[in-house]
C-alpha cells in the first residue's frame, strides 16, 4: 500500500527539513593563495559536502524506495550540480563572490589563480546573479535542488528489468510530486497565472545553466586530477570517476 500522498506543503516541509547543515572548511586556507592550496581547500570542502548530500538525498520522500541502482546513478550524475546550486544559494547576497563555506569565500581574482577556473567562476557568478534577479525563495530553491537529483539520470538507459521499470515509474511519479510542490510554492507568491507559468519556465531554465556549469566543472576537476594537481579524497574521487564513466 502506498503511504498517503503528501500535500505539496507537507512535501516542501520535509524537503526543507532534509537540508544539510552549514558545512565549514574548518582549516584556514593557506596563504598566499596558490593553485594547489585553493584546489586543496575546494576538494576538501566538496568531499565533506558529498557526505551530507547523500544523507540529504535519503531524506527526500520516496528516494530510498527507488532501486539502489537508480539511487547510485542519480547521485553520480548530479552531485556537482547539487553542490553548485547550493553554492549559488549561499552566494546570492554577495555579488561577485562565491561563498563556498562560511570560512571559505573567493573573489574572481582569488579564483583566477587556478588555471581554467575563472571561466567556471564567471558562469557561477552569472547564474547566481540570475538567482538574485529572480528573488528565488527558499521553498523554490529546495524544490529545484530535489528536481536536479530526481531528473538527473533520465538520460541513462536502465536495464529493462521489471524492478528497474517499477523504479522508473516511481521516479517519474516522485518527480511530478516535486513539480507540483514547486508550482504550489510559486502560486504562494500571489502572481497571476500567466506570471506563475513564466516564473516556472525561468526557474527550470536555471537548471540547464547549472547542468552546463557542472559539466564544465567536472571536466576541470578531471584535468586537475590527471595533472596530479590535488589529492582527491575517496568519496570525491569515486564520484568524479563514476560521472566520467556515465558521461563517456
Amino acid at each position: 500500500l502506498n503511504p498517503p500522498a503528501l500535500t505539496p506543503e507537507q512535501l516542501i516541509q520535509q524537503i526543507m527539513e532534509a537540508e544539510p547543515p552549514e558545512i565549514y572548511l574548518m582549516k584556514d586556507i593557506r596563504r598566499p593563495l596558490t593553485e594547489a592550496n585553493v584546489m586543496m581547500s575546494l576538494t576538501n570542502l566538496a568531499d565533506k559536502e558529498l557526505v551530507h548530500m547523500i544523507s540529504w538525498a535519503k531524506k527526500i520522500p520516496g528516494f530510498v524506495e527507488l532501486s539502489l541502482l537508480d539511487q547510485v546513478h542519480m547521485l553520480e550524475c548530479c552531485w556537482l550540480e547539487v553542490l553548485m546550486i547550493g553554492l549559488m544559494w549561499r552566494s546570492v547576497n554577495h555579488p561577485g563572490k562565491l561563498i563556498f563555506s562560511p570560512d571559505l569565500s573567493l573573489s574572481r581574482e582569488e579564483g583566477s589563480c587556478v588555471q581554467g577556473f575563472v571561466e567556471i567562476f564567471d558562469m557561477l557568478v552569472a547564474a547566481t546573479s540570475r538567482v538574485r534577479e529572480l528573488k528565488l525563495q527558499r521553498e523554490e530553491y529546495v524544490c529545484l535542488k530535489a528536481m536536479i537529483l530526481l531528473n538527473s539520470n533520465m538520460c541513462l538507459t536502465s536495464s529493462e528489468g521489471s524492478d528497474e521499470l517499477q523504479s522508473r515509474s516511481k521516479l517519474l511519479r516522485l518527480l511530478d510530486t516535486v513539480t507540483d510542490a514547486l508550482v504550489w510554492a510559486i502560486a504562494k507568491t500571489g502572481l497571476t497565472f500567466r506570471q506563475q507559468y513564466t516564473r516556472l519556465a525561468h526557474l527550470l531554465m536555471l537548471l540547464s545553466h547549472i547542468r552546463h556549469v557542472s559539466n564544465k566543472g567536472m571536466d576541470h576537476l578531471h584535468c586537475m586530477k590527471m595533472k596530479n594537481m590535488v589529492p582527491l579524497y575517496d568519496l570525491l574521487l569515486e564520484m568524479l570517476d563514476a560521472h566520467i564513466v556515465h558521461s563517456s
Binding site: I54, L68, Q71, V72, L75, E238
Partner: peptide, 13 residues
C-alpha cells in the same frame, strides 16, 4: 562504488 554505496545503505542515525 564502495563509499557511495556504504553511505546509501547505512541506516540514518
Amino acid at each position: 562504488h564502495t563509499k557511495l554505496l556504504q553511505l546509501l545503505t547505512t541506516k540514518p542515525e
